[in-house]
């Protein structure tokens, strides 16, 4: 899929672990792991909102479009 999830990059920038993020946003570790690995089919605006709030970033910092070519 040409949409890349840069959640691990943002976590590294904020020096935050996935467990910590999971506790702060209220999303299970398994779901965050699916998102981080890029296996998710879709992401809710509410999820994106809360992640951006906790990581103090923009949606574009987490999601990136990269052409398949």
């Amino acid at each position: 899929m040409p949409i890349i999830v840069n959640l691990d990059v943002m976590l590294a920038k904020r020096k935050m672990s996935l467990t910590e993020l999971s506790e702060k946003v209220g999303i299970t570790m398994s779901n965050l792991s699916i998102l981080k690995k890029g296996k998710a089919k879709a992401i809710r605006f509410s999820t994106l909102e809360v992640i951006c709030e906790v990581l103090e970033c923009q949606p574009g910092d987490i999601l990136e479009y990269r052409s398949e070519e």
Binding site: L32, I34, L35, A40, K41, A42, I43, R44
Partner: peptide
Amino acid sequence: QEETKLTI
């Protein structure tokens, strides 16, 4: 159902 399951 699978898409719903993989919607975070």
